[in-house]
Amino acid sequence: MDTMTLTKVAAGLFGAWLILLMGKFAAEEIYHSGLHGEASYVIEVADAGGAEVEDAVPFEEVLASADAASGAKVFKKCSSCHKVEQGANATGPYLYAVVGRNVDAAEGFKYSGALEKVADVWSPENLNSFLTNPKGFAPGTSMGFKGLKKVEDRANVIAYLQSIAN
């Protein structure tokens, strides 16, 4: 096999790869451009009751009855990225005295900028919203955690975070 044959094979492979990438790019542009128009008809359906209904109990009441010891157990999910010692940043910022602290106040941690747009202070209510769905609360956040679905778990974690600062 000579150099010319090798060059032709390489050019064929790279050309095919380039055409594939250009086709992918064009397909994404067409799909996201809105050229496909509106739906021609909409089928109305009755609510099947599949959505979860939030409890009518206010979060403040759930937080008042929260257990910090249970929160420490739930916090183990968070401990792979967050530490509770002051100044001990890991993948995420340290959470010592986080309740009541400014959202971007962990010394030495570089924030993504998404949190500063939605909240100023980590109040229990802001923590509750963030822990429910981090990406929903602060779109663009670099936190990859899916969230805590149970309100009791969120309240217990917040009670635990409040207890370690005292």
Rank of each mutant, 00 (worst) to 15 (best):
K76V: 11
K83Y: 00
F75C: 01
V42W: 07
G34I: 11
F137P: 04
Y96S: 09
I158M: 02
S40E: 14
H36C: 15
N126Y: 05
S33F: 06
A66I: 04
Y31G: 09
A10C: 01
E44C: 07
K76Q: 15
S123T: 15
W122M: 06
A155S: 10
A69H: 07
A138R: 02
K135H: 05
A51P: 00
E116D: 14
G49Q: 08
A119K: 14
A165C: 11
R101G: 10
G113E: 06
G140C: 02
G15F: 10
A114H: 07
E54V: 08
D47V: 04
E107Q: 06
L20M: 07
M143D: 13
V103W: 07
K73C: 08
M143F: 13
A88E: 12
T132K: 15
D47E: 12
A68P: 04
H36E: 15
A138Y: 03
A51H: 00
A26H: 12
A105I: 06
T7K: 14
L161Q: 00
S65I: 03
L63Y: 00
I158E: 08
I164Y: 02
E28H: 03
A155G: 04
D153Y: 09
V157W: 04
L148T: 05
L127C: 12
A90W: 00
G108P: 11
L20N: 05
A66G: 08
V74T: 14
G108N: 12
A10I: 07
A114F: 01
